[in-house]
């Protein structure tokens, strides 16, 4: 791994992945000794191409890896210093790790309000209403559509709802997987603006998994680049963005393509 100057953590990190290795089946190694840290209230991006192991990493952190027939072969995952490797996904959520999975996973037959209630179901009843109000403040659009069935909303609104549902549980860290996938650039831009607000409003730390490096680097403090199951680059966002490697493999190529298209 090429470490650029600066470390993200001052005190105990919120989420820490230590020399984590994961394999599917016996041989297919998906992650190899990966280290990653998310500090309190920090915004961290995990970048990489398709098949680099981003989804595997996020599944492992969120406890879903066993459902996908993968297994941890080494290393640890710590949430506020406590190991969460091997716990069930719902348990991990209840410990304070919110999840916004890929594909705008909402409860399609439930109303917006009900979606948020399910999201906040782990909170005591008294604080739930307050929390939902805060979420509605952040996403006024959701407040307008309170009683609408989630399945009838647009893609962007569903993505907002997925974010809102995860936030309803008052997580200390939020895992956000491929937010931009399948959404129009304009809408993606708007949602990324909301992500900034999430940190300001709630002080929630974010771990953003994103294929679109430019977008993610625009809002994060710190970034990791994953290639073939290994972290190949890590550092503060501006340094990563400026690095040669990043430029060649991700930003540059894309910029050229975009220029050509333009």
């Amino acid at each position: 791994m090429m470490a650029l100057n600066g470390t993200p953590a001052a005190d105990t990190p919120l989420l820490e992945v230590r020399t984590l290795s994961v394999a599917y089946g016996r041989k297919a190694v998906a992650l190899n000794a990966v280290n990653l840290t998310v500090p309190k209230a920090g915004v961290v991006a995990l970048l990489g191409a398709n098949g680099a192991g981003k989804t595997t990493l996020i599944r492992t952190v969120s406890g879903l890896i066993r459902l996908h027939n993968g297994a941890i072969t080494g290393g640890e995952v710590l949430l506020e210093g406590k190991s969460i490797a091997g716990l069930s996904a719902d348990r991990i959520v209840r410990l304070g790790m919110g999840q916004v999975p890929e594909g705008r996973l909402v409860f399609k037959n439930l109303t917006v309000e009900e979606n948020l209630q399910v999201g906040g179901a782990i909170l005591p009843r008294a604080t739930l209403a307050e929390r939902l109000d805060a979420v509605y403040d952040l996403f006024p659009r959701l407040a307008e559509r309170k009683d609408q069935a989630a399945g009838l909303m647009s893609g962007g609104e569903q993505q907002m709802l997925a974010l809102g549902r995860a936030l309803a549980a008052s997580p200390r860290v939020l895992l956000i997987d491929e937010l931009s996938l399948g959404l129009a650039p304009l809408i993606v831009g708007a949602i990324y603006q909301q992500l900034k607000k999430i940190r300001e409003h709630f002080g929630t730390a974010l771990l953003i998994v994103e294929q679109n490096a430019r977008l993610a680097l625009g809002i994060c403090d710190y970034a990791y680049v994953l290639e073939r199951g290994e972290i190949v680059l890590a550092g503060p966002a501006e340094l990563v963005a400026a690095s040669e490697r990043m430029h060649e493999s991700y930003l540059g190529a894309r910029a050229e393509r975009q220029a050509a298209a333009g």
């Binding site: 969120s62 879903l64 069930s88 996904a89 719902d90 348990r91 959520v93 209840r94 999840q99 999975p101 996973l105 909402v106 409860f107 399609k108 037959n109 439930l110 399910v118 999201g119 179901a121 782990i122 549902r165 995860a166 549980a169």
Partner: peptide, 12 residues
């Protein structure tokens, strides 16, 4: 409605 979304909402 969705098993996975329920799990990821902390539902047992």
């Amino acid at each position: 409605d969705s098993h996975e979304a329920a799990i990821l909402s902390g539902v047992n």
